[in-house]
Amino acid sequence: MKRFVPFPLLSLALFVMWVLLTGFSPGHVVLGAAVALLVSRVMLLLKPEPATIRFCPAMLKLSWLVLVDIIRSNIAVARIILFRPKNRRSDFIYLPVQLTSPYALAVLGIIITATPGTLWVQHDPQSKVILIHVLDLVDQDAWITLIQNRYEKLLMEIFE
């Protein structure tokens, strides 16, 4: 199984993409399956680090949290743009993280950047610190504990 389908998730994603783009017909299902199996073998040349992804309830919980946070911070940023509060302060903060898996860090980067109002800028793997820019910085420690408790724990559960 592992020899024929080295990257099952990637193959599945390619197959779904092919079927969605071409419309559902038997010929394209076969062609899409062939493309998914052959093209995903290209990744063998890159020798990516094996990812350990655990499919657990934490995934659903994380997606729900991110959705809620995106809606909430959209409203917050919209308010800042419309009313331009006078005492708003935006600044960089250093955020210590325990995550080491590159995949978990990538997901954390996507989450932090996709929520309006926070932006991942830089990561240092040696000191395990992330540099983040926050649009409306009220309390630095509150941000750090928020991200650590809200996302990092769940990501740890999924990836490590």
């Binding site: 940023v77 950047t113 109002g117 820019h133």
Partner: peptide
């Protein structure tokens, strides 16, 4: 650095 956040909306 403030403006980077805006198009994310």
């Amino acid at each position: 650095y403030d403006r980077v956040h805006a198009p994310t909306l």
